[in-house]
Amino acid sequence: MAVLSATEVEQRPTHPPKNKARWTASEEASGLALISPTLLYAVALLFLPILIVVAYSFWTQDYLTIDRTFTLQNYKTALGEPIYQDLLVRSLVISLVVSVVTVTLSYPIAWFISFHGGVHKNLWLFLITVPCWTSYLLRVMSWKVILGYGGVMNTGLLSIGIIDKPLTSLLYNSNAVVITLVHSWAAFAILPIFVSLEKVDRSLIEAAHDLGDNKLMSFLRVTLPLSLPGVISAFLIVMIPTVGDYVTPKLVGGKDGVMIATAIQAQFGKGANWPLGAALSVTTMVIVSAMAGIAVLALKLLVRMAK
């Protein structure tokens, strides 16, 4: 654009005012003007707060006063204290397991809807997504009811005689957390995979068969690589938010299922150590982003090998 205005002014020195008018009416100006309210809102209530969190993580707190000298002490605590180390590692492992399980379980569903959904694709998608739109808190509560000592699963199994005393291993551990989270994120994983499968040109698969691939080979060499962008965004959309989940570990996790969010929340409640809470938040974000990055790379590598 800058190049253009310059040449215009040179060519037609009599018309410079029009150039300005022509820019204000341009795509760029209109687009920026239109998006600015939303953008400013997001900057004020999303970007700035996150910046403050980052800033706080380098400060220290002494009762109610904040000491604004730069320090890495909070990060030493966050990364050095065994309790936070444990929580971080457990959160990451759980979110990784949840995302792998969710994506693996969801892929066939997305594939089924995309390839065999027929004229009812939208109805299928709707059916799959409805449960995920209902209250998250209520769904977690429901799992607690299902998995509890005197819960649905135990009483149900008891009444049909499969077990003779209630299982205690169902609730209040990381397995319960994983099951609940997988249930919560299913639709979020299916949607992006479905979208990318829809974009796969069906004649490419026919071409692969025509060129001698069997069904499995054509899936591995054509369908899967082409749907990879969907798999990756499904992976990210599940993994990153779950790492900081608060409700599920709190309700069904018990002692073994506590995750980092509980520790973060504690710093803003009675414990009241904002800088440490901030450092824990930043650490979580950075580590989960890095891990997501590695996982994405690994996934790409895996598919490349399959080809």
Partner: peptide, 16 residues
């Protein structure tokens, strides 16, 4: 927000 742990922006909003 779709790609962010909700607890983190809840905490950041609370702080600000």
């Amino acid at each position: 927000p779709l790609f962010l742990p909700e607890i983190i922006f809840a905490v950041s909003l609370l702080m600000i």
